[in-house]
Amino acid sequence: MSSRKGQKKAAQVVRAQIAREKRRTRTIITSIAAVVLLVIAGLIGWTVYSSQKSKSFTSPPNANHTGTGIVLGQGPVTIDLYEDYLCPVCKQFQDTSGPTITQLINENKVRVVYHPVAFLNRFSSTQYSTRSAAASGCAAQGARFKEFTDALFAKQPPENSAGLSDNELIDIGASVGVNRDAMSSCVRDGTYKTWTAHVTDDAAKSGVTGTPTVKVNGKELTDRSPEGIKAAVAAAGK
């Protein structure tokens, strides 16, 4: 083997080694860049979420002391109702079991805490869940929460639509006896939107993952029929 040939071979080996080294550096740099990108993306999500989360909220009158729902009735057994005004199953529930609950309130057997949550904003183009729930706070301010709730479920818009407009919400409020001017400014200013966020957040925190959820003295009810509710209230009242 001539020395020249040997030199050539050595140079080749060195070149290959340099190339390998370069490749490795490149891989490390691109990997670090990619990891940084992923971490930053995650941090952006966290930041956006924290900034969206409102720290303060105004509860309407008639809310419970934690501000997570509107209280009706003063009976010994507490029923917690988590409902979204856009949720079709909530409407069914209201239609079948609503009168029973009203009856139990009138008989002074239960204290009902209505939690108007906004779980289904995705299913309307106008954040109807938040708007309607905030409007129910306005109705509560006018002492017509129950009437407004019944009227909203009666006129429930379908999922994946725009939902009822602010004007329609105001009209419904006025039709059940809320002062029109008060209702109008309250809905337009979104006075209770932060409250709705608080109610929704609290519901998720307390393990409510869907609507409707009915709890009797804190225990989730699986049988939401009129008979099931009556039985649970009777059992809890003992």
Binding site: G42, L43, I44, G45, Y49, Q52, K53, A197, T209
Partner: peptide, 28 residues
Amino acid sequence: LAASGRAVNAYQVMPYDVAAVIGAALPF
């Protein structure tokens, strides 16, 4: 993002506050 957090929370494998943060970071 809040709904994403609730979806994570629905699995009931971690405290709500952790689920909310993960749910917010995940889409990004």
